[in-house]
Amino acid sequence: MKQTISVLVENQAGVLNRITGLFSRRAFNIESLAVGPTDDPTISRITIIVDSGNNMVDQVEKQLNKLVDVIKVRTLEENNLIGRELMILKVNATNKTRQDIMTICSIYGAKVDDISPSSMTLELSDTPERLDTFQTMMRPFSILEVVRTGVIAVQKGSGKI
Protein backbone atom coordinates (compact mmCIF):
# COMPACT_ATOMS: atom_id res chain seq x y z
CA MET A 1 0.00 0.00 0.00
CA LYS A 2 1.26 3.47 -0.88
CA GLN A 3 1.47 5.95 1.95
CA THR A 4 2.34 9.62 2.01
CA ILE A 5 4.58 10.93 4.77
CA SER A 6 5.01 14.65 5.26
CA VAL A 7 8.10 15.78 7.16
CA LEU A 8 9.06 19.26 8.36
CA VAL A 9 12.82 19.65 8.77
CA GLU A 10 15.36 22.33 9.59
CA ASN A 11 16.52 23.90 6.34
CA GLN A 12 20.18 22.98 6.87
CA ALA A 13 22.99 21.35 4.93
CA GLY A 14 22.97 17.58 5.13
CA VAL A 15 19.39 17.14 6.29
CA LEU A 16 18.24 15.42 3.10
CA ASN A 17 21.30 13.18 3.28
CA ARG A 18 20.35 12.25 6.83
CA ILE A 19 16.81 11.34 5.84
CA THR A 20 17.64 9.33 2.74
CA GLY A 21 20.50 7.70 4.65
CA LEU A 22 18.05 6.59 7.29
CA PHE A 23 15.81 5.03 4.63
CA SER A 24 18.63 3.04 3.06
CA ARG A 25 20.12 1.99 6.41
CA ARG A 26 16.82 0.66 7.71
CA ALA A 27 16.00 -0.92 4.32
CA PHE A 28 12.89 1.21 3.72
CA ASN A 29 12.11 1.87 0.04
CA ILE A 30 11.34 5.38 -1.14
CA GLU A 31 8.89 5.51 -4.02
CA SER A 32 9.08 9.26 -4.48
CA LEU A 33 10.53 12.20 -2.63
CA ALA A 34 10.03 15.94 -3.02
CA VAL A 35 11.72 18.72 -1.08
CA GLY A 36 11.07 22.44 -0.96
CA PRO A 37 11.02 25.42 1.38
CA THR A 38 7.92 26.31 3.39
CA ASP A 39 6.50 29.71 4.25
CA ASP A 40 9.24 29.92 6.88
CA PRO A 41 12.61 29.96 5.07
CA THR A 42 14.32 28.12 7.94
CA ILE A 43 12.02 25.11 7.54
CA SER A 44 11.72 22.75 4.57
CA ARG A 45 9.02 20.23 3.86
CA ILE A 46 9.82 16.79 2.52
CA THR A 47 7.04 14.66 1.06
CA ILE A 48 7.90 10.98 0.88
CA ILE A 49 5.82 8.23 -0.69
CA VAL A 50 6.58 4.72 0.53
CA ASP A 51 5.01 1.51 -0.68
CA SER A 52 4.74 -0.87 2.22
CA GLY A 53 2.74 -2.27 5.12
CA ASN A 54 1.47 -0.27 8.08
CA ASN A 55 4.05 -1.67 10.44
CA MET A 56 6.92 -0.39 8.34
CA VAL A 57 5.41 3.07 7.94
CA ASP A 58 5.05 3.16 11.71
CA GLN A 59 8.79 2.37 12.03
CA VAL A 60 9.67 5.00 9.39
CA GLU A 61 7.74 7.60 11.34
CA LYS A 62 9.39 6.68 14.65
CA GLN A 63 12.88 6.60 13.19
CA LEU A 64 12.39 9.96 11.44
CA ASN A 65 11.20 11.46 14.71
CA LYS A 66 14.52 10.54 16.32
CA LEU A 67 16.56 12.71 13.93
CA VAL A 68 17.57 15.96 15.54
CA ASP A 69 16.84 18.03 12.41
CA VAL A 70 13.32 16.68 12.04
CA ILE A 71 10.67 18.97 13.45
CA LYS A 72 7.48 17.06 12.66
CA VAL A 73 6.43 13.86 10.92
CA ARG A 74 2.90 12.96 9.83
CA THR A 75 1.50 10.15 7.72
CA LEU A 76 -1.35 11.65 5.66
CA GLU A 77 -4.68 9.84 5.45
CA GLU A 78 -4.70 8.36 1.97
CA ASN A 79 -8.38 9.03 1.19
CA ASN A 80 -8.31 12.56 2.51
CA LEU A 81 -5.36 14.28 0.88
CA ILE A 82 -4.55 16.45 -2.10
CA GLY A 83 -1.51 15.02 -3.86
CA ARG A 84 -0.04 16.61 -7.00
CA GLU A 85 2.98 16.01 -9.15
CA LEU A 86 4.48 18.12 -11.94
CA MET A 87 5.65 16.49 -15.17
CA ILE A 88 7.50 18.01 -18.13
CA LEU A 89 7.39 15.75 -21.16
CA LYS A 90 9.20 16.20 -24.48
CA VAL A 91 7.65 14.28 -27.37
CA ASN A 92 8.34 13.91 -31.09
CA ALA A 93 5.91 16.08 -33.06
CA THR A 94 5.62 16.64 -36.79
CA ASN A 95 3.08 18.58 -38.85
CA LYS A 96 1.10 15.36 -39.06
CA THR A 97 0.93 14.55 -35.36
CA ARG A 98 0.93 17.98 -33.75
CA GLN A 99 -2.86 18.35 -33.83
CA ASP A 100 -3.45 14.92 -32.23
CA ILE A 101 -1.05 15.80 -29.43
CA MET A 102 -2.83 19.10 -28.87
CA THR A 103 -6.16 17.28 -28.56
CA ILE A 104 -4.84 14.99 -25.83
CA CYS A 105 -3.26 17.98 -24.10
CA SER A 106 -6.56 19.80 -23.97
CA ILE A 107 -8.32 16.73 -22.54
CA TYR A 108 -5.77 16.53 -19.72
CA GLY A 109 -5.31 20.25 -19.30
CA ALA A 110 -1.64 20.07 -20.18
CA LYS A 111 0.22 23.20 -21.26
CA VAL A 112 2.58 23.53 -24.23
CA ASP A 113 5.83 25.05 -22.98
CA ASP A 114 7.94 24.87 -26.12
CA ILE A 115 7.61 23.86 -29.70
CA SER A 116 10.16 23.06 -32.42
CA PRO A 117 9.86 21.68 -35.98
CA SER A 118 10.29 18.13 -34.68
CA SER A 119 9.15 18.22 -31.05
CA MET A 120 6.84 19.65 -28.41
CA THR A 121 7.50 20.15 -24.70
CA LEU A 122 4.42 19.71 -22.53
CA GLU A 123 3.73 20.47 -18.90
CA LEU A 124 1.11 18.83 -16.70
CA SER A 125 0.42 19.01 -12.98
CA ASP A 126 -1.98 16.41 -11.62
CA THR A 127 -2.23 13.26 -9.54
CA PRO A 128 0.47 10.69 -10.27
CA GLU A 129 -2.15 8.34 -11.73
CA ARG A 130 -3.31 10.97 -14.25
CA LEU A 131 0.30 11.70 -15.16
CA ASP A 132 0.79 7.99 -15.81
CA THR A 133 -2.15 7.82 -18.21
CA PHE A 134 -1.07 11.02 -19.96
CA GLN A 135 2.36 9.47 -20.42
CA THR A 136 0.73 6.34 -21.85
CA MET A 137 -1.23 8.45 -24.32
CA MET A 138 1.96 10.19 -25.46
CA ARG A 139 3.96 7.00 -25.91
CA PRO A 140 2.72 6.28 -29.50
CA PHE A 141 4.16 9.65 -30.61
CA SER A 142 7.56 8.62 -29.23
CA ILE A 143 8.57 10.31 -25.99
CA LEU A 144 12.01 11.97 -26.00
CA GLU A 145 12.29 12.88 -22.32
CA VAL A 146 10.20 12.77 -19.14
CA VAL A 147 10.91 14.71 -15.94
CA ARG A 148 8.69 14.28 -12.87
CA THR A 149 9.02 16.08 -9.54
CA GLY A 150 7.62 13.49 -7.17
CA VAL A 151 4.38 14.07 -5.30
CA ILE A 152 3.73 16.93 -2.92
CA ALA A 153 0.67 16.60 -0.73
CA VAL A 154 -1.42 18.24 1.97
CA GLN A 155 -4.32 17.03 4.07
CA LYS A 156 -7.75 18.34 3.02
CA GLY A 157 -9.56 20.82 5.26
CA SER A 158 -8.22 23.49 7.61
CA GLY A 159 -5.89 21.23 9.60
CA LYS A 160 -2.15 21.64 9.17
CA ILE A 161 0.99 19.85 10.23
Binding site: N65, V68, D69
Partner: peptide, 8 residues
Protein backbone atom coordinates in the same frame (compact mmCIF):
# COMPACT_ATOMS: atom_id res chain seq x y z
CA UNK B 1 18.40 26.01 18.80
CA UNK B 2 14.95 25.50 17.50
CA UNK B 3 15.07 21.88 16.45
CA UNK B 4 15.70 20.90 20.04
CA UNK B 5 13.03 23.17 21.37
CA UNK B 6 10.53 21.76 18.88
CA UNK B 7 10.99 18.04 18.80
CA UNK B 8 13.72 16.78 20.99
Amino acid sequence: IRSLAHTH
